[in-house]
């Protein structure tokens, strides 16, 4: 993961749907000022609070956010499983229920359940049969792609969490959808299964499938999504190309041991341009800096040693965006 060149303190990527280049691919998913709240009266809880989002065909978008940020509710509305309290949701230009019913959109749900007493093969055939003959004919191929061929006769209840996740993935693929919505698709998978899953996804993305996925694994967003949307408390707090988001928000972290912390040094650092978050833990001083060289120089001149400079990750960007 190399740094993309960021010349100067890049502006904070605020909630804007500014696509970097002119994109003339048709819009696949569209949310316009969508709100969703649960409960009523004093116990009214907003889950999604004014989200605008549009995803073009063939895009791969990661949806990040802490628990309770509104990711699952947003995806539910895209699938027509939950109706928004207000605002507009369109999938391929129509109501989401239509895309869901004709198999144009497929999903791996976080809370989607399987029937434990069915076998893996029965589960996939049952769902396939609801889409019709073509989907039924696709069963062997989808089973193979989801790496389930050897598990066809096993009861779902006897499958591990990762195996069940693969069953759900097969169900999402059975209608050969244009759009895939994945809510924490690799939860419960081990490292090998996760890698295999994303390999399959990559071929799909290359073939032009639109993919939107919510994840807790920042490296999945980093490695797989060209665009990342960060949600927090029901709103979109960032929406940008993943590389740009990482670079612009993830200032490098500079830390060093300072024998005697002098107020003058702290003052000098705090006053330096592009330095934020100066913190002292015991004799260890850490800060975030867009110009890490300058900060390092200040520290070394001030008598600091054991200097460490850590590259920006999406995690730091994520933390910066979602901390209160």
């Amino acid at each position: 993961m190399n740094e993309t060149s960021v010349q100067e303190a890049a502006p904070r990527v605020a909630s804007s749907s500014a696509s970097p280049a002119v994109d003339d691919r048709p819009v696949a998913l569209e949310l316009i000022d969508v709100r969703k709240h649960f409960g009523s009266g004093e116990r009214r809880v907003p889950a999604v609070d004014g989200v605008d989002l549009s995803v073009r065909r063939g895009e791969v978008v990661a949806l990040l956010g802490p628990n309770g940020a509104g990711k699952t509710t947003t995806l539910d509305m895209l699938l027509g499983l939950t109706a928004p309290s207000s605002g507009t949701v369109r999938v391929l230009g129509a109501a989401p229920e239509r895309a869901t019913a004709n198999g144009a959109i497929g999903a791996v749900l976080q809370t989607g359940g399987l029937l434990g007493d069915l076998t893996v093969g029965e589960t996939v055939r049952l769902i396939a049969s609801l889409y019709g003959r073509e989907a039924l004919a696709r069963v062997p191929e989808v089973m193979r792609r989801a790496d389930l061929a050897g598990l066809a006769r096993r009861r779902v209840s006897k499958c591990s969490g990762g195996e069940q996740q693969r069953v759900k993935f097969a169900l999402a693929m059975i209608s050969d959808p244009d759009i895939l919505v994945l809510d924490e698709p690799t939860a419960g998978m081990d490292v090998t299964a996760r890698r295999h899953f994303w390999d399959v996804m990559r071929t799909d993305a290359d073939a032009g499938r639109t993919i939107v996925f919510a994840t807790h694994y920042l490296e999945e967003a980093e490695q797989f999504a060209r665009r990342t949307v960060v949600m927090h408390r029901g709103t979109v707090v960032a929406d940008a190309p993943t590389a740009l988001l990482r670079a612009s928000l993830g200032e490098r972290t500079v830390s060093a041991t300072v024998p005697a912390v002098s107020d003058a040094l702290v003052a000098a650092l705090t006053a330096a341009e592009g330095v934020t978050g100066v913190r002292i833990d015991g004799d260890r001083l850490s800060l975030r800096a867009t110009d890490s060289d300058a900060a390092a120089r200040l520290l070394l001149d001030g008598g600091a040693h054991d200097l460490e400079i850590a590259a920006a990750t999406l995690e730091t960007a994520f933390t910066a965006l979602t901390e209160d």
Binding site: L109, G113, L130
Partner: peptide, 16 residues
């Protein structure tokens, strides 16, 4: 009970 649980959500995403 099945319809109310996760399986219902799974079926809700099909033409059924």
């Amino acid at each position: 009970t099945e319809a109310k649980q996760g399986w219902g959500r799974q079926l809700a995403m099909t033409p059924l």
